[in-house]
Simulated assay, not measured.
Amino acid sequence: MSSPVSQESTRRRLTRQQAETVARLTDAAVEVLNAEGFEGLTVRSVAKLAGVAPATAYTYFSSKSHLVAEVFWRRLSAGVSQPDPTASKAERVAQVLREVALVVAGEGQLGGAVTVALLGTYPDVEHLRIRIGVFIRRRLAEALEDDPENPSPLLDALEMIYAGGLVHAGMGHMTYEETSERLVAAAHLLMEK
């Protein structure tokens, strides 16, 4: 069964066959990343591994940064659930922060590649960066019972903490698992004030 995200792309709504092609490309991108790193990743090499013509791959992804950002968006939207309404606010925030941090845990070189890719200036990457930010803000707002359109200072602070934590982990200073627990601890400190 496919999710709504698997049927969309940065550039357009996808047919079932197109969605399958994009899924093959994003899966192949992770394999190439783990074998060659971000520097060795190319849309062409991903297309070859996925069994897709390079021209077809470029109709979906304008650059390797766009491709990696799409992988992250798909993993994030599938891996960060709505906060548990029966849990306390602190537990809900912890759930969201853990899930955001663990989306790329154990994925080899994907985390570092996501950090580099999301800092890119390509319009398709910028579109995904905004979509990712809005998604995480909404999840945190749901956890806090806050308004994502008019965020509280606490929501703003939590966004800064997760963004810094993920960049820190993406640079290889700590694992995503360690980052997850540090994010949760920082959130608890903020929420206790």
Rank of each mutant, 00 (worst) to 15 (best):
E99G: 00
Q7N: 06
T56G: 02
K48F: 02
L119G: 15
S2K: 10
R11S: 12
V71T: 06
G164M: 10
R12P: 05
V96Y: 02
R182H: 14
A105Q: 12
V104I: 08
L25P: 00
V68P: 02
E70M: 07
I161Y: 01
H127F: 10
L67H: 05
G111N: 09
R24T: 03
E192D: 13
T115S: 09
M160G: 07
G172Y: 13
R74T: 00
P4R: 06
G165W: 00
H168A: 08
G172L: 12
T10S: 15
E159V: 02
G112T: 04
A57D: 05
S3E: 11
R13W: 09
Q95L: 02
T59E: 03
Y162P: 00
D146S: 07
G172I: 15
D147P: 11
S63K: 14
M171D: 13
V103H: 08
S9W: 09
A28I: 05
A28E: 13
I130H: 13
A90C: 08
V114A: 06
T21S: 02
M1F: 10
V184Q: 11
R16S: 10
D156Q: 15
S180P: 07
A50I: 13
Y176W: 03
P54Q: 10
A157I: 08
Q109Y: 06
S6N: 04
E39D: 14
M1A: 09
G133T: 03
R11V: 14
E192P: 05
L41P: 05
V43A: 07
A141W: 00
E126A: 12
G106Y: 01
T121S: 15
R137M: 09
R139L: 09
S6D: 12
E181C: 09
H168N: 08
S45G: 13
E107G: 06
V134K: 13
E159T: 03
V43M: 06
P85A: 15
D27G: 07
P151K: 04
S45C: 10
F61A: 05
R92D: 05
I132S: 11
V52P: 01
G108E: 09
R16D: 14
V68D: 03
E91D: 15
R129C: 07
T10V: 10
T15P: 07
A35E: 15
L140S: 07
G79Q: 02
V46C: 03
